[in-house]
């Protein structure tokens, strides 16, 4: 029973945001001094015959008017043709997808665990707000969040990998097993520390939002109404408080999940994990613009998609949005 107008408006916004992102990347690419020829082909070979250059321009539609190129560019983006890396001369899209797979190995478990633990801890802390345990946890989280992620990662490497030698110093596989292909257990062994770190960052972020949300909800009149009915505290928490407190969490969590692609940059840099993050730093050092744009586009697409999903989810949870009369 989702209100059609509301959904349409949201989809319209997402589309507009997508167009802006694509346009931004298009103009950055085209305003750039030089083009594929000067930046990429000439770096491979010193001499190019003029016919080859012309053919290239024709092939890639660079001889057409700008607006036509723009349309072609958008079509290409939709088909996954995201340009070529300066450094490797390879198409950007498959490169990013391959790295994304590696990133997801640590991101997926971290995001799922992080959201679940963050919500549970935050809800509990908010429910008990003002108590000793709540304050202890709250203060701990403030301090935890204030310390930069990459610093936590470096300290974790120092303590757990270097001093205690429980985990490897970095990378995704041991060289000794590489000859016989990738061993899932070996990868997992390498992934545990980064996953734990990422999870705790996500927990800390969600904890704070969930706690505030819960504190706001327990001050509401309908919580008193629920108690006045004779419900026990557990039922008040589960049936009445939790669902209301989760409403603002949906949007916040989406923001965090979308942002975590970039959040993993630090973790991947510290642990030399071959994902999007490492690709980003690498491209940043080499000023490999097409790759950076590809990553930006990917992140934008994921964020836009995630926010649309969050809107739909929120309207499922909150009847006031669902009916379209907020």
């Amino acid at each position: 029973m989702i209100d059609g107008h509301y959904l349409l408006r949201r989809i319209g916004y997402s589309g507009a945001a997508f167009v802006i992102c694509v346009t931004l990347t298009f103009f950055i690419l085209h305003l750039m001094p030089g083009d594929y020829i000067t930046n990429y082909l000439l770096s491979i070979s010193n001499y190019l015959p003029q016919e080859a250059v012309d053919q290239f321009y024709q092939q890639y539609g660079l001889d057409r008017p700008l607006w036509e190129q723009y349309v072609i560019y958008v079509c290409n983006i939709l088909q996954g043709h995201w340009g070529y890396s300066y450094q490797y001369g390879l198409p950007v899209f498959p490169m990013i997808m391959q790295k994304l797979t590696w990133s997801l190995v640590i991101l997926l478990p971290a995001v799922l665990l992080g959201i679940a633990i963050g919500i549970v801890l935050g809800a509990w802390s908010g429910w008990k707000s003002g108590g000793k345990k709540d304050l202890a946890l709250f203060n701990f989280m403030i301090v935890f969040r204030a310390i930069p992620e990459f610093w936590w990662a470096i300290m974790a490497v120092w303590v757990f990998a270097f001093s205690l030698q429980w985990f490897p110093l970095g990378g995704f596989t041991s060289i000794s097993v590489l000859s016989s292909g990738l061993n899932p257990w070996d990868v997992l062994y390498h992934a545990i520390l980064p996953i734990c770190l990422l999870t705790s960052f996500i927990v800390a972020g969600n904890y704070y939002v969930m706690r505030n949300s819960m504190i706001a909800v327990i001050g509401e009149d309908y919580i008193t109404t629920a108690r006045a009915k004779g419900l026990d505290e557990r039922a008040v928490l589960w049936r009445h408080a939790l669902k209301n407190a989760l409403l603002p969490m949906v949007t916040m969590t989406t923001f965090q999940v979308a942002g975590i692609i970039m959040g993993s940059v630090f973790i991947e840099t510290v642990f030399s994990w071959p994902g999007i993050g490492l690709l980003t730093t690498d491209a940043l050092r080499m000023r490999d613009l097409p790759i950076l744009e590809g990553i930006f586009l990917l992140d934008a697409l994921m964020t836009i998609g995630a926010m649309l999903a969050a809107d739909i989810l929120a309207s499922h949870l909150d009847p006031r949005i669902r009916m379209g009369d907020q």
């Binding site: 916004y13 992102c21 931004l24 942002g259 970039m262």
Partner: peptide
């Protein structure tokens, strides 16, 4: 409305692209 549209554009990677450019 404009802010609504700009909201989902991720700032951090955009910043990286723009600064490189």
């Amino acid at each position: 409305r404009i802010l609504d549209i700009l909201m989902p554009i991720p700032i951090f990677p955009l910043l990286i692209v723009l600064t490189t450019f």
